[in-house]
Design a protein around this nucleic acid. Structure first.
Lengths: 215, 215, 215, 215
DNA sequence: TATGAATGAGGTTTCATTCAT
DNA sequence: AATGAATGAAACCTCATTCAT
């Protein structure tokens, strides 16, 4: 059973996943995840992963393409969970700004709760050649597109200013998220509600169209 | 002649610098800089640096503490150039917002013109243990403090809103800069003036105090 | 399988040991031992050990902590053999002085028969930082303690003078052994019985209690 | 000015020597000598020697054949001093046994006072291929021959037994000296008069001719 | 499904030494 | 008499990975 097959099984319900996959495959992923809490990917060796997993080193190459395959597997699992969660929250909200706020708060909350996920996405995966062609990056683009859609909807409904290209607004928001989370993730402190509130003040007072401003 | 001595010489004029240091020392730094345009630091080997520099590998260790020392040297040189440049530009501007704009535009222009500098600062240096205790990070803090001072001055003069902690405003700005530059730096396309203008619209409409708003 | 585990297996019978451990692990130890007959440890390279063992160089670091780990392994094996041998001989003797004589003669005989063991202990291991915290040094302390016990018993039975601290007597004896063996070990000549007899004359005329002296 | 020339100058009086030789040449030798007090030759690098000497590294190769050349130079200087000293002492003594005793006591005293000299001769120089063809070894042979001459004289005068080849007696004596000094030199404790007296007891009771024995 | 053994390429770093000035 | 620059070999060690069982 290889990585591709695993990914498909992964899409099934979480309960089933954990049992459907070979135990050692999960142990390896869990081990790497645990290690990522304390070091970056490049300084974790295959030997260390398997030692932590209490599993034979060769199994990495049975279940994954290579060492990096384990990282992608972890990321992919997180992304799927993330996308589902976000999808549910957006549906509940009314109006583009509310949806956006849900989205951003959900995103930050996910990073806050799952540091390893945040680390991988913020630090590990970027300068890896080939990442931007990976399946996982496709998921990110899906996410990005749904944010674009919401902004677009907000522009059309008049909630969001229309003098700036939507893609740029989206990038601003994504940048805000990343910057808000970067330091806490690197230095390991939690992201306070105040910080997030301030992010919204700065973000929204900037992008909300003048006619809608309270003051 | 070691790294420390080199740094001091570095502070001298650029013309002098290049001749005062051993040729191979500069060749190595130049070679690493060239290589950084195409790969990340960790996947550049000492052998590769010296091969590119057409210089003996062991000179890395004669002129620098270790391989990473070359990276620090490059970064340090850029930082010194950067700080000088920025300092000059700020003095020319009147008013906190103008100063801030100069600062941010200068910062982005520097990143745009010197991709390697941007890459090192945005990608390479962060998760290196010990970076935050380095001399170079001290320079960054100097920069950060001068930004804080300008914001503070803007708050006192009424140009900038006073309901958000200054440190958070500063982080927002730094985050905006980083995010504006991140994608262009990673994907290698240039940063358009429009992008920067938009950043200011978003940034300033957010931080300018309501009483000063035109609409 | 690492060094610690190996040590435990080591305690098993010799026949079993050689088969229980990875063949290459033993080949490496044997190779180093052979090389130590002709050069000192510092001038034997890892490449040389593995070449002699006809084994891949990296196995040194798989089976041992580092190059020095092989030395410790060899020493440890010898120590275990040594301790067993010594233990058996002591039991056979009656009276503290006889026991002591057995001990010392056994010790010297071991050095005489196993020059590499002697070399390691007398020359290679001493000024290595960390040796005195090693497992092997613990074995030495065990040995040292059993010598102390015998001396103590001799003092209580009146065989050994009681006006000198036991630890000093013990050190005197250990020093005598070392002194006797050092030159033969270094220059590669055998330790004559006469030399050992003389050591006893000097040692015992010094430590035997006055009441027991013939003259 | 090269080593050979230096050696010749060396043979001149001590006062002149130090001034006749280039200062850096002496600085290097002094530096190595100082370092030898704490490490063995193999773990002292050329860089370390020149750094300690506060002299340019290449000067090692200007004034000496190679790194080991410095060691030989130091040894040679000691040897010349040693030979002069010994020569003077011998002349003062009457009778072969007295001369021999002077010789041995002088030799041991020299080792005791000049640990670096002793270390080089006892430990560093032996397993170096080519040593036995060196100029310095010629000096040693001179020394050895003068000892042979004394023994010969003692045999002829009846002081020393004539049933053992002279060369063997000489080796016995040289071995005794080495044996006596080895442990103190390695472990860094001083050589007590008692130890030396014992050496003589053992040596002379063996080599003195029966007719001259007191008992 | 899993294991232990082994490999080879490559990593960073240190060193004695030589050359040009 | 002395220097700084440069070199190439070799040191120790790590790693991802494969193979036979």
């Amino acid at each position: 059973m290889d990585f591709d097959k695993a990914i498909k099984l992964n899409l099934a319900a979480t309960h089933q996943r954990r049992t459907a996959l070979p135990p050692s495959m999960m142990k390896l992923a869990d081990a790497l995840e645990a290690l990522l809490k304390e070091k970056d990917f490049n300084s974790i060796s295959a030997a260390e992963i398997s030692r932590t997993a209490q599993v034979n080193e060769s199994l990495i190459y049975r279940y994954y393409k290579d060492k990096r395959g384990v990282l992608h597997f972890i990321l992919h699992n997180y992304m799927i969970e993330f996308m589902g969660e976000i999808g549910r929250q957006i549906k509940a909200a009314k109006g583009a700004l509310n949806k956006l706020e849900m989205l951003v708060r959900g995103h930050i909350a996910m990073y806050d709760a799952n540091r390893v996920f945040a680390k991988i996405l913020l630090l590990e995966v970027r300068n890896f050649p080939g990442y931007f062609e990976s399946d996982t990056y496709e998921l990110i683009k899906t996410y990005s597109r749904s944010m674009t859609a919401i902004i677009n909807q907000g522009v059309e409904s008049g909630e969001i200013r229309n003098d700036i290209p939507i893609s740029r607004i989206r990038n601003m928001i994504l940048g805000g998220i990343e910057h808000t989370c970067m330091a806490p993730v690197i230095f390991g402190y939690s992201i306070s509600d105040d910080t997030v509130d301030d992010l919204f003040k700065l973000l929204f007072d900037g992008i909300v169209s003048p006619s809608r401003r309270s003051s």
